Structures are given as structure tokens and as C-alpha cells.
Simulated assay, not measured.
Amino acid sequence: MNTATTAPTGHAARPAARARAVGRHTGWHRLAVAGVRHLPEDAVAVTLHVPDALREIFAHRPGEHVVVRHRGTGTGTELRRSYSVCPPPDDPAALRLVIRRGAPDGFGAYAMSGLAPGDILELSPPRGAFALPERPGAHHVLVAGGSGITPLAAMAAAALREDPDCRVSLIHSVPTPAHALLADELAVVKDAFVDRFTALYVLTREERDNGPLRGRIDAEKLPRLLTALHARPGRGTTFALCGPAGLVATVRQALAEWGAAPDLVRWEPFTLGDTPRTPPPADPTTAPHETRVTAVFDGHQRVATVGPQDAALLDALLRTHPDVPYACREGICGSCRAKVLAGQVTTGSQHALDAGELAAGYTLACRARPLTGEITLDFDA
């Protein structure tokens, strides 16, 4: 997707389920590690201690994420990684992150081997728009791929706790049973809500037969799984999807063909890589030779100059303002979301903004290139 975004002249309506809190907390906060628990599939659950003075700032809802800022050991290179808040089912207020090992020099590898209680991490406050549609008494169907289970596990437990009339079904695509993150905690949820919660594990490396619980989820397999879960098209069934972008796209298409209500399908793709992918080079026939960009974040204005060497506005901003918000740099996490207040940009391929947000003038600094010589972005909007 390549969308031109211009500073809007009015206020466009945005879907309620995608709206973000106005006046959200920003900045970085140093939190101590309270606990580290090793999980299957090269993962670790890290619980942070939140002091009383920061409890309001780090209050979170299912589906929100935080960004961790860390300097690589030995290199001093700054790493930023986005993680869904994933509290255990018996302590929904806990600030816990489930982190998988990534590249050998990435933060995941450090968390697996070097992180211990008492260590200090820098975190941004929780944010994000990923949430279940608000449909009391609905059947919520969650589809996860790999570590995409982390926000969905929190959503499942919260929905079952807060709505005694709802039902939750989870489909988790994993290579083998040993790869099923949080399966033990989901079993606890099943015991607590035995009549209202169902979990199916689809094993991608177990292809000895053609049953619905073997192989990859596709347009043929998904309807069979939904039938097994007694899910029906219509306003009484909602969906939340999280996993690799390819899986999310496949499931969205299959749901459209199955008859799911489009406005009741929520999704959030993730990336497994530790190396960010940059946008392709700018088109010299449309991009200005030099652009002055003014960025508003944390209530202050910062100014940078975007030149031909910059793949996106974020690159120029980071040269002189390293605290500008970002995490994945792949157009997925939405941490660098900003509203275009003046000027015009083109937003390249991305997965974090929906059509309503783009129409309202939002862009991602890691995907945005200038189309005019002056641009103003508001990261606090």
C-alpha cells in the first residue's frame, strides 16, 4: 500500500475500536525487573516492578504493547523492541512481557541469557489500538500464529472475566505442541471457564494426515475449524488475529469468504526479525531535494532536515533527536504513528494504520517520505 497523506482540513471519524486515548503518556521510564521465568520455545516471561508513582502511567488493557529500549552489550548500539503486555491469568494488572530469542545480538538473546531480577529496563508507556470488538455476549474467535498468542491470551482471559455471557475460542498455529507458548496458562483459563473457553492447536509440522489440526491454516482449513468451534457468520461472532503477516492476510481473506462481518475482525501482524527492513529508495521525480520537518512529541517541537539519503522521515529525525518514538521500523508496530499537521507525505507499505486513520491524516514516520518542502508531524496526537 502506498498512500498519500495530507494535513486534513477537518476531523475525520475513526472506528471506535481503533481509537487511541487522547493525551496518552509518553517518554521513557526506568523499571526494575521483578521476575524472569523461562518458557518453552526459546522464550522468557519478564515481569516488571511498577512503583506506585507510575501505576497510572503503566495501567494497561489487553492488546496494548510497550517499547523496550536497550543498549547492546559491548557495542553500545541502541535496540528498541515492541512487546505486547501479557499478564498471567491470575494477575491481570501485572506488567509482564513474553520475549522470544531473536538474532544472537538482539534483545531477545540478552533477555534469555543475561536478564535477572533487579536489572533496570527502559520502557515506554503502554499504547496500541488492538482490541476485541465490544460485543457483549459474543463468541470471540482468536487466531494466533506462534508468539502472536501473547496479546490474544490476555484478551481471552479478560473477556471471560468481564463478560459472563461471552464465549471465547482460540486457534493457535504452532509447529509442534512443544512450541505452544503459554499453553500451561491457557489450561488454567480452561479450568476456570470450562464451559466458555476452547483452545485448538493446529500443528504445522505434523502433516501425517489431512485432519483440521494438521498443516497450515488456509482458506480450506479455516471453515472446518470454525465449524468445529460452532462459530457462525454474523454479528454475534468477532475475530482477533495476531501472527506473521502472511498468516494474518490468509485468515482475513478466508474470513471474508466465510462471511465474517468485516467490522468485527481485528488484526495485528508481527515481525520476527531483529534487522529492520527499510523502504525502497524514494522516487527522485516526486521527492523534494530537501525537506524541513517539524516533529511534536512529549509536548516539545524538534526540527530536522530530510535529504535524499534518508529512506524515511524517521531517519532524518533520529540523526538529531534520538528520543523520537519508534520500535520495529517495518510499519508494523505503530510506535512511530504521527498526524500530519502541515505538508504532504506518501506512506509506503505498512500494517499498523487502517483506512480511517490514513484518511484522518495519520502516517508512520518509518514509512513516510516527503512530498512537500515543509512538513509538521504530531506524535502526541
Rank of each mutant, 00 (worst) to 15 (best):
V46E: 05
L364P: 03
A178K: 04
P223W: 06
E257I: 06
R232A: 15
V33P: 05
R196V: 13
V174E: 06
T238H: 06
E162N: 05
G243S: 07
V66H: 02
E220L: 14
S82L: 08
A154W: 04
S113L: 11
P136N: 07
D184H: 10
P92D: 13
D42G: 13
P276G: 14
W258P: 04
V296K: 01
P40C: 15
A249S: 11
G35L: 11
V189A: 11
T278V: 11
C242R: 00
A199T: 10
G211F: 09
V68A: 09
T9W: 09
D274V: 11
E134C: 02
A19V: 08
T250M: 11
T363H: 02
A94I: 10
T6L: 15
G273Y: 02
Y201P: 08
P8W: 14
L97F: 06
C86N: 00
T363K: 01
V265K: 00
G307N: 03
L203S: 01
G361I: 08
D184P: 01
A256V: 05
L241E: 02
T372Y: 05
P322R: 06
G259V: 11
A13T: 12
L241I: 08
Y326N: 10
T77W: 07
G146P: 01
R292V: 15
A129V: 04
V202I: 14
H139A: 11
P322M: 12
L353V: 06
Q301P: 00
D274T: 07
L160G: 05
L123I: 04
S335Q: 10
D378F: 04
G246K: 02
P8E: 12
A287F: 08
R69W: 02
A245S: 13
H172K: 04
D378E: 08
Q301C: 10
P151H: 00
G74K: 07
D119T: 05
C166D: 03
W258G: 08
A360R: 00
P281T: 08
R232S: 15
D298K: 02
L121K: 00
L79T: 13
L182I: 07
A19T: 09
P92S: 14
T73I: 14
R14Y: 08
A153C: 09
T363N: 03
H29G: 02
F197Y: 15
K221H: 09
P126C: 09
D263I: 05
V345C: 06
P279H: 09
G236I: 10
R302N: 08
A342T: 07
E257D: 11
R101I: 15
P51N: 05
R18E: 14
A157P: 03
V141S: 03
A17Y: 00
A111I: 12
R96A: 14
R235Y: 13
C86V: 05
V143E: 03
V36C: 13
G343S: 03
L181K: 00
P89M: 07
T346Y: 06
H172T: 10
A245D: 12
P133R: 00
G106V: 12
L200V: 02
L48N: 03
Q253R: 06
G373D: 15
F239Q: 04
S147Q: 04
S82C: 15
G234T: 14
T271S: 13
R161A: 15
S82D: 10
A342V: 07
Q301T: 12
D218M: 10
T363D: 05
G23Q: 03
W28M: 10
A4K: 04
P15S: 10
